[in-house]
Design a protein around this nucleic acid. Structure first.
Length: 260
DNA sequence: ATGCCAAGAAAGTCTTGA
């Protein structure tokens, strides 16, 4: 079962780019972030024509997540528990019925948190605390679980080309990284990190200042695996070349292959 | 220190991103 995460930065602007990548990468499951669309406006038809079931959790203009899957999806739930007043569309879960076994998949778009300090950063930290609680509950099932998406977290210095530029940024502040580490401490495996990626391995390059041409990137899109999922891990990768195409997203797809 | 770019909402230019 190939599971990918991809912050597409606008489904309407990226429909063809996403179709092209799906056709060549052939993921069974693709978790999308920043669809920037209400559910009713998601362009379903061309993706259904490729054989994908579609579950969306969108909102007007910003944020928004979705799961595309060639395998059947069951028990789809939307919204991250813990704050009934949170209207931002950043979390969707579904059970993917793999040919060998089911996998619970969570697609997430973790808040950016800038500027710091301020209410947006407080929201990010509170959101991460809610995610910790939700993850603890999900891990109680002791089943294969994949938490994937745009975490907006640079875990370590080697995950940025110029870590000194991020010292006061919400993506790299000690409190942000500590909250991410608390997630890992529940027993999760960062799939890409587990493969000891080469220096200069990133998933995001800013549109500005020639970041792509200079490989001035950061690694902020992650797939975290429960112990039961980590035992099934057969491979993972980053489809870096997507960033060099016409009208790209600023993020690229990251994927795992599970024996499921 | 700031803009550099890009998408969306909306018809100006602002908001958001990271």
């Amino acid at each position: 079962m190939k599971i990918a995460t991809f912050n597409i930065n606008g489904i309407k602007a990226r429909t063809q780019a996403l179709l092209d990548w799906l056709a060549e990468a052939q993921p069974d499951v693709a978790c999308l972030q920043e669809i920037k669309s209400v559910d009713e406006a998601f362009p379903r038809e061309p993706f259904e024509a490729l054989g994908y079931h579609i579950e969306t959790h969108g909102m007007k203009a910003f944020n928004g997540v979705a799961i595309l899957s060639k395998l059947p999806l069951e028990d789809v739930t939307r919204r991250l528990p813990g704050d009934d007043g949170d209207e931002q569309a950043r979390w969707i879960e579904a059970t993917v019925m793999g040919p060998k076994r089911p996998v619970r998949v969570c697609g997430l778009y973790l808040p950016n948190g800038n500027p710091t300090p301020g209410p947006k950063y407080e929201y990010k930290l509170a959101w991460m605390d809610r995610m910790l609680t939700r993850t603890r509950t999900l891990l109680g099932d002791e089943q294969p679980l994949v938490l994937c998406g745009d975490y907006n977290i640079i875990p370590q210095a080697e995950d940025a080309a110029n870590p000194q530029n991020w010292l006061t940024d919400a993506l790299y502040l000690p409190a942000s990284r500590a909250a991410y580490q608390r997630l890992l401490n529940l027993g999760l495996t960062d799939a890409i990190r587990a493969q000891n990626p080469a220096p200069g391995t990133y998933t995001f390059w800013d549109f500005q200042a020639g970041a792509w041409e200079r490989n001035n990137g950061i690694r902020i899109d992650h797939l975290l695996l429960s112990p039961q999922a980590a035992d099934l891990l057969q491979g993972c990768g980053i489809d870096k070349a997507v960033r060099g195409r016409d009208r790209p997203s600023d993020h690229v797809p990251v994927w795992i292959d599970l024996d499921a």
